[in-house]
């Protein structure tokens, strides 16, 4: 499942809240990936006008209009898994629910023609995702004191193996936000 950012925007133009006098593009093709959490990735891209013009020249207007803009997310491991996301349309910022369990990914964006040929435009750097759960692997010289894990889990009201998305973390954040949300200092606590 993919979610278009609320900042859906045409390729030319500013997102809601985005100052209109910042550059629309920076003259280069860029794909940036960033983890939102262990299961969701943010992708934002920009494609230079020169690249768009080149694609028009190479493919022609008709063919280009039949192409779909595709984001490919490759697992950076032995699995070779690839998740393909159709990002055609006006938005250049997307939130992607990940299908892979790989914790290291890289992406590329490009045009996919109806025959299945992919014309890559930009490639991201590698992005590391957080793990969702405590690690099952341990060092035999450092055997985990499981009760300590259980205590943390109990204190925040979650099962140890789901500690990662602990309600406690949310409660802490809510507590802070409730106080800080109306305060006059911006503060650092979140």
């Amino acid at each position: 499942m993919i979610h278009r950012s609320l900042n859906a925007l045409p390729w030319a133009g500013a997102a809601p809240g985005e100052p209109a006098d910042l550059p629309e593009t920076y003259g280069v093709d860029v794909l940036m990936l960033a983890p939102v959490d262990p299961a969701r990735l943010f992708a934002t891209f920009q494609i230079a006008w020169s690249t768009r013009n080149r694609l028009v020249e190479e493919l022609g207007d008709d063919k280009l209009s039949q192409c779909r803009m595709i984001l490919r997310l490759h697992a950076d491991d032995q699995s070779g898994a690839c998740q393909e996301v159709d990002v055609s349309g006006p938005s250049r910022s997307w939130y992607v629910d990940l299908e892979t369990t790989s914790r290291s990914l890289w992406g590329e964006i490009g045009c996919l023609d109806p025959e299945g040929t992919f014309y890559a435009v930009a490639r991201s750097s590698r992005v590391d995702l957080p793990w969702e759960r405590p690690c099952p692997r341990f060092d035999p010289e450092w055997v985990p004191v499981e009760e300590a894990y259980e205590r943390i889990a109990r204190s925040v009201g979650m099962h140890p193996e789901t500690l990662y998305c602990a309600r406690g973390c949310v409660a802490l954040a809510e507590g802070r936000d409730q106080r800080l949300g109306r305060k006059s200092l911006p503060g650092a606590a979140r």
């Binding site: 959490d37 262990p38 957080p130 973390c169 979140r190």
Partner: peptide, 30 residues
């Protein structure tokens, strides 16, 4: 990887209210 934000990850600093900044910050960084 993580943070002390709600959910424990990056969502407080990366969500639809503010995600536009990263395109520009990344370009400026480059």
């Amino acid at each position: 990887p993580g943070s002390w934000g709600d959910g424990g990850f990056n969502a407080r600093w990366l969500n639809p209210s503010n995600d536009w900044v990263y395109r520009h910050l990344s370009a400026a960084g480059q």
